[in-house]
Nucleic acid binder design. Structure first.
Length: 500
RNA sequence: GGGUCUGUAGCUUAGCCAGGUAGAGCGAUGGACUCUUAAUCCAUAGGCCGGGGGUUCGAACCCCUCCAGACCCGCCA
C-alpha cells in the first residue's frame, strides 16, 4: 500500500495534522519535505474517509539565534529578539514575514494549503496562557522528565518560561525571579527588571515544553517531523512524556522523515549554502514534479535529488505514469501517488518538458515557440505554455548538463568533415530539396534516405548531420529538431558545407 | 561511547508490520516497425535482498552482531 494510505489507515476518527517552521532564514527545498509530508498525510487521511484538518505553525516568536552568513553584521544587536520583532534584511516587512510570505505562496502553487498559524499570535491572544500557567505550576514534573529522558541536568534556576525583556526586547537573556497570578517577574542581563504577562506575547515557553503545549492547545493528533527530533531523548520523546504525563494529552502520531540531499553535494542546509531555495524550484520544476520527488519516496528514506540530467528522466517518468493514469492502467498504489501529485493540476494539456528544453535553445522568442508547438493537433493554453517555456529556459540556464546544451551553427561556421560525412550532407540537401513538406516525418525520411545512399552506418550518418547543424555528435530527434528550424537557413548551411 | 532511521538489479524502488518460489520502472543489450539518437512495440540479460550468526520444516521479512550512510544524545529550533 502507498505509504501515506498505510499510515492513515491505522488511524480512526477526526484528525488534525500539524507541522511548521521557524522562519529564521531562506526556506529551501529541504524544508518543503516537511510541509509536503504533512500534506500527503492530510490528504491520505481524507482518502481513508476521515476528517482531517491541516495546520502549519510559523514560529515567529522564536528568537534570532545568531547572525547568519546572509545577514549583515548589524544584526548582532537583534540576536535573542523574536523574529517577528526585528526588521527584514530589506523592505518594510518584519524578519519572519519576509521569509514566510514567499514560502506560503510557494506552498499554494504546490497546492499545499494548510491553515497557517503564527505562534506569536497564539501567545499574543492568550491562547497559550493557561498551559503556560500549568507548566509553571508543574515545573518540577517537567523538569524531571527533561532530566530523565535527555540525561542532562538542568540548572537550579531552570524555569519553563522565557520572558521577553521589555527594555532590550530579548528572549532568554532574563532570569526569572518569581511567579504570581500569570505574571513572571524577571531580571534581564541588560539591567532591566520587569514582569511578563503569560497571556500576552511577552515571553515564550522553551521549545521542549512549547511543542507539547501546542499539541494540546491546538488538538494535534498527527505530526511529521525531521529525524533530528525523533531520536531517543530527543524532543519528541520528552514532548510525548510531558504531553501525556503532565498535560494529560495523548501525544500525536509521529511520522519521521529524512532529509533531502543534493546529488553529489550532500544534505541541504540553509547555512552551508548547499540548497535550492523553495521559490527557485518553481522557476524550473513544475509543481506536480516537485510533489512527485517527495511523494514517491517513503519519508524514512533520504532523497538524493538531482536537478541536472536526472531531472529530465524524472519528468519523463512522471509523464509516462500520467499517461497511464489517464488510460486507467495504473495499479492502486501508483494511482494514489499520482492523484496526490496531481492535486490541483490543470486538466488542460501540458507541453512536453524535454521537448521545450530543445525549443528554448533554438528560439529566444517565446511566441515563436508557441506557434511551433501549437502547430499540431493538441493546442496548449497560453498561460501554461508561457510558464512551461520559462521553466525550461531556467533549467537550461541553471542545471542542464553540457550534453543537453547546443547552439545552432551559423551558415558559414567552418567545420572539418571527412569525405564520407560530406557525402551525407550533400545527399541530405538533395533529398530535402525534392521534398515538399517540412515536417518531422518527411525530414526524418529524407535523412534516412540520404544516409542510406551515402552508404554510411546509420548512427555515423546521423552524427554527421548533427555535426553540421550543432557541431556535436548527438542532438534532439532529428526530424522534429530540423522541422523547428527555419528551412532556408538549414538549406543554406547544408549547401555551404556540401560545396566547400 | 550510547541511541534512532536507512541499506533489495547499474539507477529509482515494491515486498518487511501479520515468515512460504524476490516483482516493477528506467537504463543496458538484441530485435521489430520499408529500419536508427531524447519515438513506439517485443524480447533478453542483470539480485548469495550490505556481511556474518541465530530462531524455524522454511528468513529480504523475526532475533543478535558487524559494516556503511544520515541524524541525535550540549544550547536552540
Amino acid at each position: 500500500m502507498y505509504w501515506g494510505r498505510s499510515f492513515a489507515s491505522q488511524m480512526s476518527g477526526k484528525q488534525k495534522v500539524s507541522t511548521g517552521i521557524s522562519p529564521s532564514g531562506y526556506i529551501h527545498f529541504g524544508n518543503v519535505r516537511e510541509v509536503m509530508t504533512g500534506d500527503i498525510i492530510h490528504k491520505s487521511i481524507q482518502m481513508e474517509n476521515m476528517d482531517s484538518h491541516f495546520i502549519y505553525l510559523c514560529d515567529d516568536i522564536d528568537p534570532l539565534r545568531k547572525v547568519y552568513p546572509f545577514l549583515p553584521e548589524s544584526y548582532a544587536e537583534h540576536v535573542g529578539k523574536p523574529l517577528r520583532d526585528i526588521p527584514a534584511p530589506e523592505g518594510p516587512l518584519k524578519y519572519s514575514e519576509y521569509f514566510i510570505q514567499p514560502f506560503i505562496k510557494t506552498m499554494e502553487r504546490l497546492n499545499i494549503r494548510p491553515e497557517v498559524i503564527r505562534t506569536g499570535e497564539l501567545y499574543r491572544d492568550g491562547k497559550l496562557g493557561d498551559i503556560i500557567d500549568e507548566s509553571i505550576r508543574k515545573r518540577g514534573a517537567i523538569r524531571n522528565i527533561l532530566e530523565k529522558f535527555s540525561g542532562r541536568e538542568l540548572e537550579d534556576d531552570w524555569f519553563p518560561y522565557n520572558p521577553r525583556c521589555a527594555q532590550c526586547g530579548r528572549i532568554s537573556s532574563a532570569k526569572v525571579t518569581g511567579y504570581r497570578e500569570g505574571k513572571v517577574s524577571y531580571e534581564c542581563s541588560c539591567g532591566h527588571k520587569g514582569e511578563s504577562d503569560i497571556y500576552k506575547d511577552e515571553g515564550k515557553l522553551p521549545w521542549r515544553v512549547e511543542w507539547p503545549a501546542k499539541w494540546k492547545v491546538l488538538g494535534v493528533t498527527v505530526e511529521p517531523f525531521g529525524k533530528d527530533h525523533g531520536t531517543q531523548g530527543g524532543s519528541y520523546d520528552t514532548g510525548k512524556a510531558i504531553s501525556e504525563q503532565v498535560f494529560g494529552y495523548r501525544a500525536p502520531e509521529p511520522m519521521m522523515f529524512e532529509r533531502i540531499l543534493l546529488k553529489g553535494k550532500g544534505a541541504m542546509h540553509s547555512s552551508t549554502g548547499i540548497n535550492i531555495p523553495a521559490e527557485e524550484m518553481l522557476r524550473f520544476a513544475p509543481p506536480e514534479i516537485i510533489r512527485y520527488v517527495i511523494a514517491r519516496v517513503p519519508p524514512a528514506r533520504y532523497i538524493d535529488f538531482d536537478p541536472g540530467p536526472g531531472f529530465l528522466n524524472l519528468v519523463d517518468e512522471y509523464e509516462r505514469l500520467y499517461r497511464m493514469l489517464r488510460e486507467g492502467n495504473l495499479d492502486q498504489d501508483k494511482k494514489t501517488l499520482l492523484d496526490l501529485c496531481n492535486a490541483g493540476r490543470s486538466q488542460d494539456e501540458i507541453p512536453d518538458y524535454r521537448h521545450l528544453t530543445t525549443l528554448v535553445q533554438i528560439y529566444s522568442d517565446d511566441s515563436r515557440i508557441g506557434s511551433i508547438i501549437n502547430n499540431g493537433e493538441v493546442k496548449f493554453r497560453d498561460d501554461i505554455l508561457k510558464e512551461r517555456i520559462s521553466m525550461a529556459r531556467e533549467w537550461i540556464r541553471l542545471y542542464a548538463p553540457e550534453e543537453s546544451k547546443f547552439r545552432i551553427s551559423r551558415t558559414d561556421d567552418p567545420v572539418e568533415m571527412t569525405p564520407g560525412q560530406k557525402t551525407v550532407i550533400c545527399a541530405l540537401h538533395s533529398e530535402l530539396s525534392s521534398s515538399v513538406s517540412w515536417t518531422p516525418e518527411s525530414i526524418h525520411e529524407s535523412a534516412r534516405k540520404a544516409i542510406e545512399k551515402s552508404g554510411m552506418e546509420p548512427a555515423a550518418g546521423f552524427a554527421s548531420i548533427y555535426f553540421a547543424i550543432i557541431g556535436k555528435e548527438r542532438g534532439p530527434r532529428l526530424g522534429f529538431f530540423l522541422s523547428g528550424l527555419d528551412r532556408d537557413s538549414v538549406m543554406k548551411r547544408l549547401i555551404f558545407l556540401c560545396g566547400e
